[in-house]
């Protein structure tokens, strides 16, 4: 089972254009900021929005093509929205079996399937409950069961975990991972949370301003981000420049010493934890030393994330103790250092 999509659609001022394939059993994450066009793409896949141009096909069955549009209700798909959107007037079991009912499955078979799916998502005995009686996590589980009960060829998940609180999100994410592992069809997951993408997807497509800016495995995207947005998401400072042997001359000015020889346009990526801060310029040791000004500081667990402005903009994680000992306040002048070996460098 393969989903093939080439989509072009105009939404207000945003031109959305993307092409991707999702194999059977594969999970593709569309990762990007709000308003990037991810949800538009998934609405096109669902048949809720007609593309201006392009082609959507599943296993050779064409869903969208020029002059051809299969409406949502005739597509073999299941969709889970950010808010569970369980029909408030129906019991949980009737919600789960809704898709079977519209497809003409008999009452007995419907009840059996609904009960089975409720058990699979850990909601046994809640079939008679009303949606309002469920917690957020339970509702999202029921919504997943409702989408999967029809055994669709394509599963679309539109920010399925964003509405959940942090703790519930952890559990539901783990369960979702298990269900996606069992699902034989193609899954498209829309998310703005890199953790969801990394934890659930086999491949990640990064969408910004309506187009794909990067595609790869979660590991690739995580280690070698190609845009500032992704770099910030995965907690890296991304510096664009030109490789000149063991140095990278940055586009924005400044030079970064690196451990590998490179040439041509490259990215240099710096992890916040590899940046050290000093009040006086440190001497010796062959490493990068830059003057910087502290522009922002946010506590982040036991560390403080410091945003630095200067010739080389960086993000540094220092321990709360060190932060206090250095007496750092926003506006403070500091020296930032990074070992050459800790700068990842890769071609643009």
């Amino acid at each position: 089972m393969t989903l093939q999509a080439r989509i072009q659609v105009q939404r207000g001022t945003l031109a959305v254009s993307a092409a991707f394939d999702v194999g059977g059993g594969e999970v593709l994450a569309l990762l990007g900021p709000n308003g990037a066009g991810k949800s538009t793409l998934v609405r096109v896949l669902a048949g809720l929005l007609r593309p201006d141009e392009g082609r959507v096909a599943v296993d050779g069955a064409v869903w969208d093509a020029p002059g051809w549009h299969v409406p949502a209700h005739e597509r073999s798909l299941g969709m889970v929205f950010q808010d569970a959107l369980l029909f408030p007037h129906l019991s949980i079991a009737d919600n789960v079996s809704f898709g079977l009912r519209t497809r003409g499955v008999g009452r007995q078979a419907r009840h059996a399937t609904a009960a089975e799916w409720l058990a699979r998502v850990g909601l046994e005995g809640l079939g008679h409950a009303r949606p309002a009686e469920l917690s957020g996590g339970q509702a999202q589980r029921a919504a997943l069961a409702r989408a999967l009960a029809v055994e669709p060829a394509v599963l679309l998940l539109d920010e399925p975990l964003s509405a959940l609180d942090a703790r519930t999100r952890l559990t539901v994410r783990a369960e979702l991972r298990r269900h996606l592992g069992d699902f034989p069809g193609s899954t498209v997951l829309v998310t703005h949370d890199p953790v969801d993408a990394m934890a659930l997807a086999d491949r990640v497509v990064v969408v910004e301003d309506g187009r794909i800016v990067q595609a790869g495995t979660p590991d690739e995207v995580n280690r070698r981000p190609r845009t500032d947005y992704v770099a910030r998401l995965v907690g890296l400072s991304l510096l664009a420049g030109t490789g000149e042997g063991r140095a990278v001359r940055l586009d924005g000015g400044g030079v970064v010493a690196v451990a590998e020889e490179t040439s041509g346009p490259v990215f240099a990526a710096v992890r916040p934890e590899s940046v050290a801060l000093y009040l006086a310029r440190p001497e010796g040791s062959p490493r990068n030393v830059w003057p910087a000004r502290l522009t922002g500081a946010t506590p982040h667990g036991a560390t403080v994330r410091c945003e630095l402005a200067g010739e080389v903009p960086l993000v540094a994680d220092v321990t709360a103790t060190a932060f206090a000992e250095l007496g750092l306040v926003p506006g403070a002048e500091v020296w930032a250092t990074v070992k050459a070996a800790e700068v990842a460098v890769y071609a643009r």
Binding site: G47, L48, H73, F87, R146
Partner: peptide
């Protein structure tokens, strides 16, 4: 909320 109608459509309801 018209999103309920979208959900119904994705569940095969005309």
């Amino acid at each position: 909320d018209t999103r309920f109608e979208d959900v119904a459509a994705t569940l095969g309801a005309g």
